[in-house]
Structure formats: C-alpha cells, structure tokens
Nucleic acid binder design. Structure first.
Length: 275
DNA sequence: TTAGGGTTAG
C-alpha cells in the first residue's frame, strides 16, 4: 500500500459535519427544509468533533438569507438568526468562529426578517469581539436603523461614526432611499448635493440619482424629478434601463404622455445600458 | 462568502 494512500483517503472522505452541511443544502434546494429539521441538522453539526469551515458556514447562512419564502420555510432569514444563536450558545465547545462575513449576513438577515432591533444588538456584539468592521456590514446596520425610522441617526453614523473613508456610494444610497420612502425626498436631495461636493468615492451614481428622482415622482413633484434627471445627464451620469423604466412609468401615471414619449425616444435613440 | 434603484399580467 502506498504511503500516500491513507492521507489521500482521509482528505477525500467528507467529515460528518460536511455531510450534514450537504444535507442541509439539499433540503433547502428541494424546498423541504422545515425549521425543525434545520435546527436538528445544525445542532448535530455543532456536536461534531471536526467543525465545518467558516467559509462553508457562511455559504450556508448566505443561501438561507437569499431563500424566498416557501411552504417549508416561510422566513429563512429568521432561521439564520436562530441558528447563529444556537452556535453562540454552544459555549466553549469547539465550533466554527464567526467572521465579519458571518456578522454581515446575520445583520442583513435581521433587516430582512423585520427584526432591526436585533441587528443593532448583533452589531454591538460584533464591536465587542474586536473583529474589524467593514463597509458592507455597516450598510446592513444603516438599513436596520432606517427600518426603525431612525434615518437621521443612520446618517449620523455614516457621517461621524463610521471609520474614515469607509462610507461609499452604497452606504449613502441606503439613507437616500429611507428619506424618499418616508416622503422626505427634499432631504435626500440635500444629501445628494453633499455627496457631489465630497466627490471621489462619494459622487452620486446612477443609482443615487434614480432613488431621488423616483422619490420626487412618488411625491408628485414631477418638475423637480425632471430637473434632477436633466442635471444628472449634464453631470455625465448615464441613465440605465432601471432609471428609464422608473421615469417612463412615472410620467405615464402622471398623464404626461408627451414627456414620457420624449424620454422613450431618447432611450431608443441613445441606446440603453442594462442594469 | 457579506451591500444600493424600477417595472411587468391576469
């Protein structure tokens, strides 16, 4: 027998924890992952002497975070929160240690499961661990604050609490959307102006403009929306298919068919970037 | 491996 054989044999045999992980994914994919089954498989996974890699664990959580509601599992993001708590309660037993990715997925799940309060609590716990935060985790935190109608506070976090240079155009768009969703598109416009002044990484993107333009339309501020659209193009930001769809739809609803036709023709004439 | 915008039919 080759001396290499035992080694290659052992590395080719999946650990019991990995087998359970595969089973988990299988049930998720075939729509048979009832929460009780998920908890059983996960608890069994935690009891294995060889834990799964943190990357595999994050992959599992990320898949659950994205899972649409099904008969078996109506709220997969809530299940992620549950499973994370079980892992945390496993105490000193050797289990997979969470990383910034784990926390990022977890806090996003709090937002999706309509438990923004838990998102804030988990973020506090993340800070205590000493793990370095990143801009993506902050985006989910900002969403949780906005869910709780604390948009101004979220803006304060973005402007004053986030480490220097961490905020980017996506962080801002979370706040822009929240102002618009609460009927305060004028505040979103102020913020958009601030972004433009800051420049570089913070310069408004087609998404930033799209959020505020759509906000104005939804508030019935047709001319403000159109003005901003023209201003955007003067700035050299190119509209994409999402923005055209939003504008044409809004103009039609506002019975401004002539304007809608102008926008449609310019879209056809100039070509359109797919989002 | 973790994040932002729109619409659609029947």
């Amino acid at each position: 027998m080759s001396r290499l054989q035992p080694r290659s044999f052992s590395s080719s045999v999946p650990s019991r924890a990995n087998e359970l992980l595969s089973e988990f994914h299988h049930h998720l994919g075939s729509g048979t992952l009832w929460p009780e089954l998920a908890r059983q498989l996960f608890d069994q996974m935690l009891r294995q002497p060889v834990p799964v890699s943190v990357r595999a664990l994050n992959g599992l959580f990320a898949a659950l975070a994205r899972a649409p509601p099904s008969t078996a599992c109506t709220n997969a993001p809530a299940l992620v929160i549950d499973l994370f708590n079980r892992m945390a309660q496993a105490g000193r037993r050797q289990v997979t240690a969470p990383t910034i990715y784990t926390y990022s997925i977890l806090i996003e799940c709090c937002h999706r499961a309509c438990r923004p309060d838990l998102g804030l609590a988990f973020f506090g716990r993340l800070l205590q661990t000493g793990i370095t935060t990143d801009v993506i985790t902050y985006s989910s935190l900002l969403k949780c604050l906005c869910d709780m109608k604390r948009t101004e506070e979220a803006l304060g976090v973005l402007l004053h609490r986030m480490p220097n240079d961490l905020p980017n155009v996506i962080s801002y768009s979370v706040i822009l959307k929240s102002f618009c969703d609460s009927g305060r598109s004028h505040l979103a416009l102020d913020l958009l102006r601030m972004m433009a002044e800051k420049g570089s990484d913070h310069s408004p993107s087609v998404v930033s403009y799209s959020v505020v333009i759509d906000g104005f339309f939804k508030e019935g501020e047709i001319s403000k929306a159109c003005d901003l659209f023209h201003e955007m193009m003067q700035q050299g930001v190119v509209p994409d298919v999402v923005m055209y769809t939003s504008i044409i739809n809004a103009l039609c609803k506002a019975r401004a068919m002539d304007k809608a036709e102008v926008v449609l023709r310019s879209m056809v004439h100039n070509g359109v970037q797919l989002a």
